[in-house]
Design a protein around this nucleic acid. Structure first.
Lengths: 208, 208
DNA sequence: GTCTATACGAGGATAGAC
DNA sequence: GTCTATCCTCGTATAGAC
């Protein structure tokens, strides 16, 4: 027995509207997560900013954790897109620098949800969210490749364990230095980004 | 009219006990602040860990904010002590490295309260707490001196604005890289500390 | 100045009408 | 699947006895 009351055209339109609203929700969450982090973000706030009732939020996402996980997954997929769009002509280090540049500048625009520090309650929710973990795995795999290549070419210190490089890349994406410098008001977003990329790769001592 | 009922000896003893308990409270808070940060730390937890009733806590400190501020002030005073105890033979850069080393290793021991990121609610409470701001001012002054000296000697990149160096010093004290590496279990605390100090000053590229 | 008990608000989540 | 109204837990802070 086929359903008779809903033509497929209207169904597709409904689906689109649903999709549209979920995108709006995730945009709001993305913004709030970058401004206040998971623990300080409230569902009331999310609902108010989206312009819907809190109960409606729970029709789209089962919990605050699920909402944050969806948002973080979307972020990782965007990161993968960014990585994919890098020019083939880049060296491995140039790619790594480009990723940090993208992350810091996203952070400065206020659209970089705080990456799960060891001190937030999302941490475990993320680890149980398969799509997030899968995207993260892909990203890490790509980074590991570049790190290895850069080290074998001498573009990156060989004495540095690759984990240190990997974690440093992630950590710089939410480096509070960016916030402090922005708050100071003496630099443009672009200048701040370059300063952080530079200190990350060249250090504060600079070239001898 | 002098008080008659309390001999000065007993009074002093009472004072000592009070001091002792407050130290115990601050030790607990210090530990909890480094494990969970301000927003996730609860007063129930503090009271339980100290072994006193929550109401008693409020006899010593007026609010959660006041408690955190006292703890952070004590931390800054310890930092000042550390700075003061550095050998005179050190160069400016060596002093800066020593400070980062102290901070990271304190962090790894679980006794480094998270420095006020722009995303916590303590931020404003700290700015209104005179003792904290005064200690912070002294520390910044000393750092600024060393940064200037190091740059004029060419021990630190001259193209780097001093604010960037200053903020980076503070940021590395609560660098999540340390937590990630510790969680990985592949390195000792000492190794982690040296890796972070090294990447902070020499960068990931290393010496050409 | 320590305790037990409680007031009070905030926030995550749900009920039930439309 | 959107709304209003409500539940319930947790966390800050205080009251009041000893």
């Amino acid at each position: 027995m086929l359903p008779t009351e809903i033509p497929s055209k209207k169904h597709s339109f409904k689906q689109q509207q649903l999709q549209f609203r979920e995108t709006a929700i995730l945009d709001t969450v993305n913004q709030l997560l970058s401004q206040k982090g998971f623990d300080l973000m409230t569902m009331d706030e999310v609902a108010a900013n989206v312009g819907i009732a809190k109960a409606s939020l729970y029709k789209h996402f089962a919990s605050k954790e699920a909402l944050a996980a969806a948002c973080m997954t979307r972020l990782l997929e965007r990161a993968l897109d960014t990585v994919h769009d890098l020019p083939d002509t880049n060296s491995a280090v140039e790619n790594l620098r480009a990723v940090v540049r993208w992350a810091v500048s996203t952070h400065l625009q206020g659209t970089m949800p705080l990456l799960p520090s060891t001190r937030s309650t999302i941490q475990s929710a993320l680890q149980n969210h398969a799509p997030y973990m899968q995207a993260l795995g892909k990203l890490i795999e790509q980074f590991a490749k570049w790190i290895h290549e850069a080290q074998s070419k001498g573009e990156l210190s060989v004495t540095l364990p690759s984990e240190v490089v990997l974690y440093t890349l992630f950590a710089r994406s939410c480096d509070p230095v960016a916030d402090f410098l922005k708050q100071g008001g003496a630099f443009t977003d672009h200048e701040i980004t370059e300063l952080i990329v530079e200190t990350t790769f060249q250090g504060m001592v600079g070239q001898a």
